[in-house]
Nucleic acid binder design. Structure first.
Length: 310
DNA sequence: TTCCAGCGTG
DNA sequence: CACGCCGGAA
């Protein structure tokens, strides 16, 4: 899945020469200090770190990664672990499916050389375009480009005039742009710089154009600098509520209940949830959630009619 | 209450 | 391509 090669316009190329140097300089002074950013990186640790990073703010990884790696120090140990222990180790991080997929990936990788190509990484469950490339970049400093939402924002705004803080270039254009400007000898450093810059200066909401070292070179800066933090006319999609909470919250609570008890009947689950008894609709809803947790591979119901972590 | 942020499925 | 998945922080 290589992006179509793109030749930067000579104008863009000229502008970029200064951008690269300024951004790296900014990064050297202002980078976020994370424990996993060490000189030598174990591919397995990069894999875990990147999966934890999916849909999750980097600061929250700090809390979970060391503990997880202590508990599952190698691919083989994760592959051999009880799934219930992996789920428990993931509790609080969110998107629990990632834990299941990560262990499945570990099983697939167990006792084999760690993959070094995008195609091989993409075969793993839970590894998509972004993560496959990110692993190659952070584990091996491989000269490929990857685009997360931070990089998407930074490149869109820098190279094209974005009408507001929400609008971005199409994904394939950004990837092509990313490939075109990639400093191929320092892919890892460059991507970390782009991400940190996007997370702290070129933020989604209320970007700090006033203190941006690239302001003079940024196409969108003049548009974004005075934009109010909250945009009107942008319709907010409200999350559907079930009995006062989004379903994901109920799923999380129920999964946590099951993970903290050895065998729970449906009645016990209902009791723990402290919802008004005799609410038939709520009972049916909980049943649906329990069924889904089983379908999704988190739980099982044994012949004693009690629910357990799978 | 809103914000943040990739993958897999239908 | 649209949607569901999680939970802490702002």
């Amino acid at each position: 899945m290589s992006p179509s090669p793109l030749t930067l316009s000579s104008r863009d190329r000229k502008r970029f020469a200064g951008i690269e140097e300024t951004l790296i300089e900014w990064y050297n002074m202002n980078r976020r200090k994370f424990s996993w950013r060490k000189k030598i990186r174990d591919p397995y640790e990069v894999l875990v770190c990147e999966v934890m990073g999916q849909q999750t703010q980097a600061s929250r990884i700090e809390e979970f990664l060391p503990r997880f790696l202590h508990q599952f120090p190698t691919i083989e140990s994760l592959a051999a672990a009880k799934q219930s222990d992996v789920i428990r180790a993931w509790q609080g991080l969110g998107y629990n499916r990632r834990a299941l997929n990560l262990q499945r990936a570990a099983i697939a990788l167990s006792n084999k050389p760690f993959p070094k190509t995008e195609a091989d990484l993409l075969k793993l469950p839970g590894i998509g375009d972004y993560t496959a490339r990110a692993i190659l970049i952070f584990a091996y400093n491989k000269p490929v480009a990857t685009v997360d939402v931070n990089i998407e924002r930074v490149l869109s705004r820098l190279f094209r005039i974005m009408p507001d803080s929400q609008t971005m270039l199409p994904k394939h254009e950004i990837l092509a742009l990313g490939e075109a400007i990639l400093p191929r000898k320092r892919s890892r450093l460059w991507h970390e710089a782009l991400m940190d810059f996007g997370a702290t200066i070129c933020k989604k909401r209320a970007p700090k154009c006033g203190e941006c070292p690239l302001y003079a070179k940024c196409k969108s800066g003049p548009v974004l600098i005075d934009q109010p933090a909250t945009l009107k006319n942008l319709k907010v999609i409200k999350e559907r509520q079930y009995f006062g909470q989004p379903k994901r919250i109920w799923r999380g609570r129920i999964l946590k209940l099951i993970s903290m008890n050895h065998g729970l009947t449906e009645a016990s689950v209902l009791r723990h949830l402290k919802h008004s008894k005799g609410d038939a609709d709520f009972k049916q809803f909980v049943q649906e959630v329990l069924r889904a947790l089983i379908t999704d591979g988190f739980c099982i119901r044994k012949s004693d009619r009690k629910y357990y972590l799978a």
